[in-house]
């Protein structure tokens, strides 16, 4: 069909990521790797103590000795941000992992079960998803009370429905794909079919989603502890540092600005990596998108 050939040729050229995108991807990978290293071994990057107060050195502007300046108690903001990455990454990755596993299971069960089971589960997902993630996390904390563990649990619960929904839709799509029907006509057993054809196709998009989700989880966690619902001061945690900075905006802008920049950079990095994976995944799975034949 020649009408399609032209558009297809165009479409083929479009999504190839340019040089800039590739550079961005590697920059994101390097940044995240450095951040993970800082979370594991913060002592490698700074000699300062993130918790010890030194009133004599309070509210110093950024300088070579204190790259991000010092806060009202004379603590080095750079050190606090580095040590804080441990909390944020733990919550970000932990909550995402929990949500991914739970979402995959709920979604796959909904997608594979018959009408009634699917109806009940997908309705429940729909109801929960009527609430935005941040509000949902707030509600969970309202119920289980504030604290560090609460933060992790709340963020995880808040994002589960999104994963479950994608897993369910993907399962439904793959379930109806020609190759699943083909496996059935060949006489392949249902269990093998699910493991061989359905799960691998469901897990790919979920992993991509999870990559981006780590960033969302980190922001949500920082937001909650900014509101005072997470760990207690003087824990070096990103949201808490920003909350400190809020009181000194007129005199010491650096306390709030630098940690925020680091959070933003972290989220930008996870999104960039996620998008890159999605583009690559889309290219590889091109056969999965169903192109119509000559007759619709």
């Amino acid at each position: 069909m020649s009408a399609l050939t032209a558009t297809k040729a165009l479409a083929k050229r479009m999504p190839t990521p340019g040089r800039g995108a590739t550079v961005g991807f590697w920059a994101a990978v390097v940044f995240l790797a450095a951040l993970v290293l800082a979370a594991l071994l913060p002592g490698l990057f700074t000699a300062a103590d993130p918790v010890r107060t030194d009133i004599g050195a309070a509210l110093l502007a950024p300088s070579p000795a204190h790259p991000f300046g010092t806060d009202q108690a004379g603590r080095d903001v750079f050190a606090r941000v580095l040590y804080g990455s441990r909390y944020s990454l733990m919550i970000g990755f932990g909550a995402t992992l929990i949500a991914l596993v739970a979402g995959l299971m709920i979604g796959a069960i909904a997608g594979l079960s018959r009408r009634v089971g699917d109806g009940v589960l997908s309705r429940a997902i729909e109801i929960i998803m009527a609430f935005p993630e941040f509000l949902l996390a707030l509600i969970v904390i309202a119920i289980i009370g504030p604290g560090e563990t609460s933060l992790l649990v709340a963020v995880a619960i808040a994002v589960v429905p999104a994963y479950a929904r994608v897993a369910r839709v993907q399962t439904l799509v793959v379930k109806r794909a020609g190759y699943v029907e083909a496996a059935r006509t060949l006489g392949v057993s249902p269990v093998l079919t699910v493991l061989r054809h359905i799960v691998p196709h469901t897990i790919g998009p979920l992993l991509v989603m999870a990559t981006m989700g780590v960033g969302t989880a980190i922001t949500a966690a920082a937001g909650l502890s900014f509101l005072g619902l997470g760990p207690k001061p003087p824990t070096p945690e990103w949201g808490l540092i920003l909350s400190d900075g809020r009181n000194f905006l007129a005199t010491a802008w650096w306390i709030a600005v630098f940690p925020g920049l680091v959070i933003t950079a972290t989220v930008v990095s996870t999104s960039t990596i996620g998008r890159h994976l999605r583009l690559r995944g889309a290219g590889r799975g091109a056969g999965a998108t169903h192109r119509a034949g000559r007759r619709p």
Partner: peptide, 29 residues
């Protein structure tokens, strides 16, 4: 396109409360 794309990415990624703090610092103080 790349420029606007990056701008959008930062807009989506930056925590709301931090944006507020930065705006106060710049436009308020």
């Amino acid at each position: 396109t790349p420029f606007v794309g990056l701008l959008e990415l930062v807009a989506v990624s930056a925590p709301t409360f931090w944006i507020g703090l930065v705006l106060i610092t710049v436009f308020g103080f």
